[in-house]
Amino acid sequence: MSRALKNTSRSLTGVFLFLAFAIGFSTRALCQDGTSGSPRVPEPSKTEAILLSVDALSQAAAYAPDKPIAGRLEFVGSTLMQSLATMWAEDFAKIHPEVSSKIDCQGSEESFKKFSDASATIALLSREVTPEELTQWSKDVKKNLIAIDVGYDILSIIVHKDNPLRALAWNPKTNSPMSLSNDKTIEKWGDLGIDGPLSDKPLTHVLIVPSHGLRSVAERFLNLKDRPKAITIEKENQLDIVDAVAATPEAIAVVSANRAMADSVRALAIGVDGQRIVSPRNSQAVNLGYPLLRNLNAVVALDDNGKLPPVVEEWARFILSRAGQETLIKDGFVPLDRSDIAVQQDRLGWETLK
C-alpha cells in the first residue's frame, strides 16, 4: 500500500498553483457505503483563488552545495513528470553549469528498461515502486537500484458534467471509493444511487494505456480488480481521458487533479469518514484526509563501488532541498514534508541533508 495512503492526515505542505474550491455536494452516494447518520455537507462556496506562499509550503533545508559538479544526467520514464524533469534540469544547471541533461520520458512502465551503461540515468515513475519490483529490476539491469519519493500528485475521480453524482464514500477496507461496504458489485450508475436515465447504464471506465504509471493507480482506486465485468476503454494521455469523459455521459476516470479543471467534467469529492466530504480542489485537501494521492518516485543506480555517481548524488540533494521541492510545487505537485525527506535521506544512506 502506498505510504501516502497510510498517512493521509499528514499536513498539506501545499501546491504552488491556483486551486478552485467551488462544488456542491450530494449525500446520496455517500449513504451507499453503509455509514449511519447524515454526513455533514458544507455549503457550496464561491470560487476562490488561493495562492499559497512557498514559505509556508516546503519544509526542506536550503540547498548548499560543497563545490561545483560536472557530468551528464539522463532522465527517463514518466510523461507526467517530463516537464518537472526539465525544470529540475534547468534549475540544477543554473547552479552547476557544467552539468548537461538529456530527457527521454516515454512512460513510467518503460523506465527501468532504459537504464543505460551510463551510470547517471534517473528513472522517474508517477507511482510508488514496490520492493519486489526494485529487486527484480536490479536483477534485470544488473545494477543496485534505489527508489526514493520526490513528491506527491493529488488525483481526482472525474465524471461528465451532467452526471448528478457529487461525491463518493471512501472504503478503508479496500482503499477505494468504488467498493461498497455491503459487498454489492458496482456495475451500473444506479448502484451508486443515481436515478433517472443514467441509472440503468453501466459505468464506462476511461483508462490510460498500460505504459503509464497512472494505469495501475487508476485500476486500484476504481477497484477494477474486484469488478472483472467493468467496461473499460483506453486513451493515450490524460487530456484525451478528460475529453472522453466530457463526451461520454456514463464515463468515469482518474486523472491528476490539475488536469481536472475543465468545465466539461466534474471532479468528485470523497467522503472520508462518514462525516467529512473533501474536494480535491480544496487547498487543504490532504490535511483534511483526502486519500487519492500517488507517490512520485525516482530510481537511481549505484556504481560498482556501491555509491551514487557524484552528479546523481548532488542532483538528489538538490531535489530533496528547498530549491528542488519549490520547483516541484511550481509544476503543480505536493512536496515532501520534513519527515518524508528524512526517510529518503535514510534510503540514500545520508545522515543529514545538506
Score class of each variant (00 low, 15 high):
235 K>V: 07
235 K>Y: 12
235 K>N: 11
235 K>A: 09
236 E>M: 15
237 N>Q: 07
237 N>P: 03
239 L>R: 14
239 L>G: 13
241 I>H: 11
241 I>T: 14
241 I>W: 08
242 V>P: 00
242 V>G: 00
242 V>Y: 06
243 D>V: 05
243 D>T: 06
244 A>I: 05
244 A>D: 01
245 V>K: 05
246 A>L: 05
246 A>M: 02
247 A>N: 12
248 T>H: 10
248 T>R: 08
248 T>K: 03
248 T>Q: 04
249 P>R: 06
249 P>C: 06
249 P>H: 10
251 A>W: 09
251 A>D: 05
251 A>Y: 03
252 I>S: 06
252 I>Q: 12
254 V>E: 08
254 V>M: 13
254 V>T: 11
257 A>M: 12
258 N>A: 00
259 R>E: 15
259 R>D: 14
260 A>L: 13
260 A>W: 03
261 M>Q: 15
261 M>A: 10
261 M>P: 04
261 M>F: 04
262 A>R: 14
262 A>W: 09
262 A>N: 09
262 A>L: 11
262 A>V: 07
262 A>M: 11
262 A>K: 13
263 D>V: 11
263 D>C: 09
264 S>R: 12
264 S>L: 01
264 S>H: 04
265 V>N: 07
265 V>A: 06
265 V>H: 03
265 V>M: 01
266 R>Y: 09
267 A>G: 08
268 L>E: 08
268 L>Q: 11
269 A>C: 08
270 I>L: 03
270 I>P: 00
270 I>R: 10
271 G>H: 12
271 G>F: 04
271 G>L: 10
271 G>K: 05
273 D>V: 06
273 D>M: 09
273 D>H: 09
273 D>I: 02
274 G>L: 07
274 G>R: 03
274 G>T: 03
275 Q>V: 13
275 Q>H: 14
275 Q>I: 15
275 Q>S: 08
277 I>L: 14
278 V>F: 06
280 P>D: 02
280 P>S: 09
282 N>M: 12
282 N>E: 04
282 N>G: 07
283 S>K: 12
284 Q>H: 14
284 Q>T: 15
284 Q>G: 00
285 A>H: 01
285 A>T: 01
285 A>L: 00
285 A>I: 02
286 V>F: 12
286 V>T: 10
286 V>W: 12
287 N>Y: 10
288 L>G: 06
289 G>Y: 02
289 G>N: 01
289 G>V: 04
289 G>C: 00
290 Y>F: 13
290 Y>G: 06
291 P>C: 04
292 L>E: 01
294 R>W: 05
294 R>K: 11
294 R>F: 02
294 R>P: 00
295 N>A: 15
296 L>R: 03
297 N>V: 07
298 A>Y: 14
298 A>P: 01
298 A>W: 13
299 V>E: 09
299 V>S: 07
300 V>A: 12
301 A>G: 10
301 A>S: 14
301 A>I: 14
